[in-house]
Simulated scan of single mutants.
Amino acid sequence: MSTFSIFLVLIVIVAFLLIVVIMVQNPKGGGLSSSFGGGGSQQVGGVKQTSDFLDKSTWALATLLLVLILLSNVTVISNRSNQDSKLLDENATPVENTESNIPPMPESGE
């Protein structure tokens, strides 16, 4: 298994976890955090800590995803061999473009 494949699997796993964490949150104060604390009360281990955990995990997973993408790009560049174009190869035989190789065009006025 290549290094790029390992990074690809890790990127898919982190992206899935990031989707799950974002879907659990509710932008209007509901979601998972409201079911533990009961709305307006700020308890220890309740709404405040749950929303802080979800917020920190979102940022951590997003940062990890960005780092994995950048590292996978570095591995792709390092795995690529140094190949030059055949147009730049001085030993390649040039192809001559002669008119004798081109078949005549039929006339359309018949």
Rank of each mutant, 00 (worst) to 15 (best):
G40P: 10
G29R: 08
Q42R: 14
L32R: 02
G45A: 09
G40D: 07
F53V: 10
G37T: 00
G45I: 06
G38E: 06
V44Y: 12
L54Y: 05
G29F: 03
S72R: 09
G40E: 10
L54A: 11
G46R: 01
G45H: 13
V47N: 08
P27H: 06
I69L: 13
F53Y: 15
I77W: 12
G29W: 05
G29V: 02
Q49A: 05
G38Q: 03
G40L: 06
L66G: 11
F53S: 07
F53A: 13
N73F: 14
G37Q: 04
V74T: 08
T75K: 08
T58M: 08
S34A: 11
V47C: 02
G38V: 07
G29M: 00
G30F: 07
N73Y: 12
T75M: 10
V76S: 11
K28M: 13
V47K: 14
G45R: 05
S34Q: 10
S57C: 03
L54Q: 04
N26H: 14
V74M: 10
V74K: 08
W59M: 14
S57Q: 11
V74A: 13
G39K: 02
L61F: 06
S57Y: 00
L54H: 02
Q43M: 12
S41Q: 14
S34P: 02
S35C: 08
S72V: 04
Q42G: 11
V24L: 15
A62K: 06
V74W: 03
F36E: 01
K56A: 15
G40M: 04
Q25H: 08
G46F: 04
L32S: 02
D52A: 14
Q25D: 10
L71E: 01
A62L: 07
S35G: 07
A60M: 11
Q49R: 06
Q42Y: 11
T58E: 05
L68S: 01
V76D: 12
V24Q: 12
G37Y: 00
G30P: 03
L66A: 15
G38M: 01
S33L: 04
S41E: 13
L61W: 04
Q43F: 07
L61A: 00
T58K: 03
